[in-house]
Structures are given as C-alpha cells and as structure tokens.
C-alpha cells in the first residue's frame, strides 16, 4: 500500500518532534496507544494562561508512517488555536487531509485521542 504524498512529507520531515516538561503548569501531556498495532503516541501542548491559546505543541510517536504523520499534522493544527477550538478537531479531518486508507484510520483516531488527552491533562492542572 502506498502512502499519500502528504503522509510521506510528514513522515520524512515531521513537524514539532520533541518533548516538554510534563510537570510545568502550562503544559498538558497526552499519552495514548492503539492496541490494534501497539503504537504509542505522546502529544504535548503549551497553553498561554491568559489567552488559552495553544502556543506550542510537541509530539513523539512510535508507530507506522501514518501514525507519525497524523500526530505531526495534529501538532501543526492545534498550534495557534484556543483549547476549545482544538477540541473540535476530528479524526475524520485528519483522514481527509492525509488521504488515509481505511486500514490506517485508527492512526487518526489515535491523534484525536492524544489531543483530547493532552487538553484534559492541562485542564486538570488548572483546577
């Protein structure tokens, strides 16, 4: 099965790979996994406390090209959005953007789970 150009682009040149201090108050961390394939994805966001805008995002994914591309794209998309706007990102948006085939839809599901988990972690810290 061939990867789409966009997947290849993110896979060979992933955006925002890295980690942030998970104990920092303005950082939210999401660590999620896909038991179907054993992929693990960590996605972190740094939120501006005043504006609630996600100013930076980092990811590290161990998995196939589509999982890496999905998380790379997710970090690009959440940056500059408010937390509430980021929660509106759906896995189907990622499927469309990357032209993922049906067997790789779970990779996009994983990326959506990661965004939601990171935001939830950040919200817990604000409480």
């Amino acid at each position: 099965m061939a990867y789409s150009d966009k997947v290849l682009d993110h896979y060979t040149n992933p955006r925002n790979v890295g980690t942030m201090d998970k104990n920092a108050g303005e950082v939210g961390t999401g660590l999620v996994g896909a038991p179907e394939c054993g992929d693990v994805m960590k996605l972190q966001i740094r939120v501006n406390p005043e504006t609630k805008i996600i100013e930076d995002a980092k990811f590290k994914t161990f998995g196939c090209g589509s999982a890496i591309a999905s998380s790379s794209l997710a970090t690009e998309w959440v940056k500059g959005k408010t937390v509430e706007e980021a929660l509106a990102i759906k896995n189907t948006d990622i499927v469309k953007e990357l032209s993922l085939p049906p067997v790789k839809i779970h990779c996009s599901v994983l990326a959506e789970d990661a965004i939601r988990a990171a935001i939830s972690d950040w919200k817990k810290k604000q409480a």
Binding site: G30, L87, D113, I119
Partner: peptide, 8 residues
C-alpha cells in the same frame, strides 16, 4: 467532551 479512557 471528555478524555477517552485508554484500554490499557
């Protein structure tokens, strides 16, 4: 609007 419960 909640976080998904992980299966593991």
């Amino acid at each position: 609007g909640v976080e998904k419960k992980q299966t593991v």
